[in-house]
Amino acid sequence: MPKPASSDNFRRLPNLGPKSQAMLIAAGIHTLADLHRLGSVAAYLRVKRQGGNASLNLLWALEGAISGLHWQEVAREHRTSLLLALEDAERRA
């Protein structure tokens, strides 16, 4: 299993392209430490609330950035648990 990125700068992560990075920065998420602190679901919701045009692929990419997995593997292996966590977080908000 790949190791999570140790760099505090998420700009080097392969799962997050320039548009994703721009959405994160606009939502106040500037570092990998910020992303770890929030978690993928809360970070995704923050981007969505900020008005970012984010698809679920961003959620997969964020989880991949945290876990060190490729976003496509996250989508295959963790889709259901992430969608349930997203639904729960939206219901609580």
Results as ranks from 00 to 15, higher is better:
M1V: 12
P2T: 11
P2G: 09
A5L: 14
S6R: 15
S6V: 09
D8I: 07
F10G: 08
R11D: 15
R11T: 13
L13Q: 15
N15M: 03
L16E: 07
P18R: 12
S20D: 15
S20I: 02
A22P: 04
A22I: 07
M23H: 11
L24Q: 01
I25S: 12
A26R: 10
I29V: 10
I29Y: 12
D34G: 09
D34F: 04
D34A: 13
L35H: 07
H36K: 14
H36C: 06
R37M: 03
L38Q: 09
G39Q: 00
G39A: 00
V41T: 04
V41D: 08
A42T: 07
A42W: 02
L45Q: 05
V47E: 02
Q50G: 12
G51P: 05
G52K: 00
L56A: 12
N57C: 06
N57Y: 03
W60V: 04
A61K: 02
A61C: 11
A61M: 01
I66H: 12
I66R: 12
S67A: 03
G68K: 01
L69V: 06
H70G: 13
H70I: 11
W71C: 07
Q72V: 10
Q72Y: 06
Q72F: 04
E73V: 11
V74G: 08
A75V: 10
A75I: 05
A75K: 15
H78R: 15
T80R: 12
S81T: 12
E87N: 14
D88L: 10
A89Y: 00
A89H: 00
E90L: 10
E90N: 05
E90P: 01
E90H: 04
E90Y: 06
R91P: 02
A93T: 07
A93G: 15
